[in-house]
Amino acid sequence: MEQFLDVSLFNSTLRMVTPILLAALGGAICSRVGLFNVGLEGLVLFGAFFAIVGNYITGNVWLAVAFAVLCVMLFSLIFAYLSIHLRANVIIVGISLNFLALGLTSFSLRAIFNVKGAYYDKNMQGLPAIDIPLIKDIPWLGDVLSGHSPLVYLAFLLIFVFQYFLFRTVSGFRLLAVGENPVAARSLGIKSKRIQYGAVLMCGVLCGLAGAQLSLGQVTMFTENMTAGRGFIALVATMLGQSNPLGVGASSLLFGFMDAVSIRLQGLSLPTHFTMMLPYVVTLVMMLFFKDKSYMQEARKANESSR
C-alpha cells in the first residue's frame, strides 16, 4: 500500500489532471453563458492533433502550442456561430463537432503524415519539464509539485485567475449576467452575443492547451481518438464543480487521480480491463451525489412565454 501511494502516483496525477482541468474550465466558462458544450472532447482532440502538426511544421514546441490554440479557436468559432447565431441546438452542434474532430484528425493524419492510427517521431521535442526553484528541494512535496510541463502550472494558476475574473471583475460580472438572464442583459444594452462568443473562444484556447498537454506534455505523439472520453469526463467535472472554477478544479483533481490510479494498477496482476474501467465507474458514482437540474426547470426555460 505504501508503495502504491508513492510520490510518482501524485506526480502523475498532476500530469493526468491537466488536460481534464483545462477543458473543464473551458466547459465552465461556456456553461456560465448558458451554452452546454458537449464538443469539449472534439476540441481537445483537435488541440492534440494540431499541437503535433505545429511541432512538425515549426520544430518549436512553443509555436506548436500557439498553433494548436489558434486552430482550436477557429473550430470553437464554428460552435459559437452555429449555436449563438443560427440558434442550433447546442448539444447537437457539440456532438457534430466531436464527429468532425474525429474525422478530420484521422483524415489529416493520413494526409499529412501518411500514417494510420498513430504518429510518433522520436526526434520531436515535447514540452520541457520545469523545476520550481525553492519547492523542488522540499523532500516529498518537491517531487510531487515540481518537474512538470509549464502547462501543468498554467492550468492550476488558471483556476484562480478564472475565480478572480468571474467573481471580482466587471467583465466577469457581465458574463455571469448574460448566463443568468440573457433577455435582461440585452435589455440593458449588454452585448450578450459578443460575450458568448468571447466565452466560447476562451473555451477554445483552453481546449487547445489541454490538447497540447495531451500530445506534447506526456508522450509526444498523436493517436487517433487519443482523448478517449477525457473531454466528456471534463464535462462531468464542469457539472460537478457547478461551473465554479474552484469546484471544477477539485472535481478534476479527483478524476485525474483516478486516471493515475488506473494506470498504476496496471502493474498489478489485475486484468487491465477493470483498471481502465475505474475512471468511468468513479465518474458515474460521483454523479450520483450531484443532482442535475430537473427536466422541469430546463423545460420551463426552453418554453418561456416571452418569445
Binding site: 458537449v38 448539444i91 466528456f232 462531468v236 457539472m239 454523479m287 450520483l288 443532482k291 442535475d292
Partner: peptide
Amino acid sequence: FRMNLLIT
C-alpha cells in the same frame, strides 16, 4: 437520481 442521461 437525476443523473444526466447524455453523460451516463
